[in-house]
């Protein structure tokens, strides 16, 4: 009888360190039962419902240019919901980033987790990856919402290419903000601070044309403009410096690389008290 130490030592040494798969699976286990999963569905559902309300309230006015044959049905939908969409995406990024580390903060899990053969940097990257996946689900559901509104309002045949682009391009553009929020939420234990930043900053950042286009908040506006039909969609008098799709992708990729590396390094060198 050796109940205390029954697992054979050979097995223990064969898997001396936690695999990435193990970390990914463990993160999934601990997300279940939190609000983070319902939230990924409720977010796009909320924006879609807002669209429904908009069409119910002033659908006649909104549909006029479409019925006159001046714009496509897709433009009607995206013009109404585009800004709400990316603002919700920014808010969602802040919420997901906060919730995915808050459990660890609140229950002091870090000391237990990093007392095991778990790479701190890998843990951080896995958390970012999970947050990105959840945001992708939200983003994809958002396109389902657009499609639903278009079918409901009889806005013509579904523009599959546009719908797909509306799902992935704003998502790609939102990832730097997600990385930034995860950095803040990991660094600061009290989640009120990163959440306040995550709510207030997009309000200013997304509308500002003074800040460089590669900044996380501006980048999302750039992506949405591209989705809605490029520079032509910009209001009259707007500067013609809109990012192309590939520019959005490369700016996002570079920002993610920098911010996630920074976050992983920070967690790796952190004193876990």
């Amino acid at each position: 009888m050796s109940r205390l130490a029954s697992a054979p030592r050979a097995v223990a040494s064969a898997s001396a360190r936690a695999s990435a798969i193990g970390l990914i699976a463990a993160d999934w286990r601990r997300m279940r039962g939190t609000w983070i999963l319902p939230l990924t569905v409720l977010g796009p559902l909320g924006v879609t419902l807002l669209g429904v309300i908009l069409f119910l309230l002033r659908g006649e006015y909104m549909l006029k240019p479409f019925l006159a044959g001046e714009v496509s049905g897709w433009r009607v939908a995206i013009d109404q919901l585009g800004m709400v969409h990316i603002f919700a995406l920014g808010l969602g990024a802040a919420l997901i980033a906060s919730m995915i580390v808050d459990v660890e903060h609140r229950s002091d899990i870090w000391k237990q987790l990093f007392g095991m053969p778990v790479s701190r940097a890998k843990t951080y990257v896995v958390k970012f990856a999970w947050a990105a996946v959840l945001l992708a689900v939200s983003s994809a559901l958002m396109s389902v919402g657009y499609a639903a509104i278009m079918v409901w309002q009889d806005l013509g045949p579904l523009p599959w290419a546009d719908l797909a682009r509306a799902a992935w391009l704003p998502w790609v553009a939102a990832l730097p903000l997600l990385a930034l929020q995860l950095l803040l939420s990991t660094a600061i234990k009290n989640q009120a601070v990163p959440l306040a930043a995550g709510i207030v900053a997009p309000m200013f950042g997304m509308g500002m044309s003074r800040i460089p286009a590669w900044m996380p908040w501006r980048l999302m506006t750039e992506a949405m403009t591209s989705v809605a039909g490029g520079a032509a969609a910009g209001g009259p008098g707007e500067a013609l410096t809109w990012y192309s799709q590939s520019q959005v992708v490369s700016a996002s990729g570079l920002s993610i690389l920098v911010l996630v590396t920074l976050g992983a390094a920070m967690l790796a060198h952190r004193e876990i008290r």
Partner: peptide, 12 residues
Amino acid sequence: ALVESPSYYAHL
């Protein structure tokens, strides 16, 4: 190890 107070996920 059990370092100081036990760590646990309260919702699980």
